[in-house]
Design a protein around this nucleic acid. Sequence first.
DNA 1: GCAAGGTC
Length: 659
Amino acid sequence: MGPKILCVAEKPSIAKAVAGHLGGGSFATRNVTGAQYTKNYDFTFNFGPPWGTCNVTMTSVLGHLTEVDFGPEFKDWRYPPPRKLLDGRVHVKVHNDKAAIARNIETQARNARILFIWTDCDREGEHIGNEVREQAVKGNSSIEVKRAKFSNIERVHVINAAKHPIELDSRQVDAVATRIELDLRIGFAFTRFQTLSLQSLGGPLGDAKISYGSCQFPTLGFVVDRYLKVQNFVPEPFWSIKVTHTRDDIDATFHWNRNRLFDRAAVTILFERCLDAKIAKITKVQQKPTKRWKPLPLTTVELQKMASRFLRMNSHTAMQVAEGLYNKGMISYPRTETDIFDKGMNLKALVEKHTQDNRWGPFAQNLVNGGFHWPRAGRNDDKAHPPIHPIAAFNADRNSDEGRLYEFVVRRFLACCSEDAIGTATDIELQYGPEAFHAHGVIVLERNFLDVYPYEKWTGNMLPKFTLGEQFEPKEATLTDGKTASPGYLTEPDLIALMDANGIGTDATMAEHIAKIKDRGYVMTQSKGGGNAPVREDIASGRGRGAGRGRGRGRGRGGGAVAESGRSSGGVEEFIPTTLGVALIEGYDNIGFEEKLSKPFLRKELELQLKAICDGTKTKNEVLRAEIGLYKRVYDQTEEEVGHLIAACRRYIFNGGVQ
DNA sequence: GCAAGGTC
């Protein structure tokens, strides 16, 4: 028998799955006193050379084992002053609720020769692996440490990982330790500072807790930014020309190639020249095959956006429901950035589980019978988890949140395993007097994935037959007018897209940050178009290609954050900042430093520094020193100009009423 | 009384 091996996963579900695969289905289960969710699994496994067949104990932690904290000398909020938290002494200790789990690792390590770490293969997982290592070393100082490299829990993949151990990556461990320490120092220091500074205003702020966090504030900043953009929006009138023609009972609308102009007189002149010409001529007829691509494999961010848009579920609820489904074994791990399926996965077998369902069963059967196509590959791979996909057929209440979210995950998966929709696109150009117009039509030939994926529409737009060079008198030409429309307030999918694009939070925490700024009273949600929001100004007519979608026409985002790439959405809830939320952001914006606390740059910059640690170009201490120095300067300036913050709060809260 | 990140 080879050496005794202790395997430790990041969470119980992985420990159980890996034990199942390595133990060949047979393992003994022991409870761990004081640790409700943790189990120890005993089995034997042949690792191949050099270890051979070994007795194995597989167990798990529950995420991070330890936390960083300040000593009792920092208990008082006023003294030492909050600035001292930026460089005061901190220590690492086992998290209060994790004592039993830590003790279990220590005890199990005593009679093992090798510690084999099975935490997720992402940055946080590497750090958790190191926390496990340090705990194990307490019980057995000579224990040898290895790490499994795996990205899903398919049997073959897991066994391969067991036979090819690698080393822990200490750079990633350092990067996470740096993030943890800085988040603590900055969060505590600025939370105490702004709470104490604003408490003195009394009123509703007298006993408020005004937290600062490197993720909370940029998130709030996005909401305020959009709010101000909506408030300051001035609609601009525009004019356009539309030509319509009917043939074979089919209407064709030709849109003006100039789209729209903001000068009424100019459009009137051009319009009259068209009318004077009387006869229009077809100058281009082009038909070509076109496709509507099937969706990409499902990530957490995409799940949250889709849940909000189509299931009317906010991101927080969606994640809770997804976790419930995961814990029941119905869907895969719901926190993932990966939108590409590993080639080793047996997706066809997963499709086959759904052939009995009366909603999508026939579609699944079709895939099994030869219609299966490997999903498209996205560009993101967190190397830790596969895209979200169904694991088992599940008979949920179809009207419950659980049933609806499960249905979405299944339909998305089946759509991914299907084919793109196919159609024919027609482009027609029309010359009418001095002006050119165009019409675009689509005929859908094969719906393919659309049949199982009702969340996407591609209805097509029929055009009558036109021939190149033909001339005719158009049925109607109209001069249309409209106004640019205000952008809407941020919806949840918009907000998540912005956070994602700017690196604020992770797949697992974005929904929490949003919930937190609501809880702190910085933002509120209201039904779209409701409340005191000005009603969206719709254009009167002439909704040409892109006309009327006022987005993109507004002033640029101050400060150059990455703009969201997603289109405007129909989510139900929209975010409005409270007067306090606006005051905080405006107050910080008025303080004269480059590195705005309300903007995503500081967090982004930190992410770059962490990447440098991972790449080996910077050390943990270098980054800590530089970042702490930076935040000390920001702190000093904030303290010096705190009047701006106080003035903004006074203005909004005591003049504008309290929400 | 404070953060963000894991996980339940």
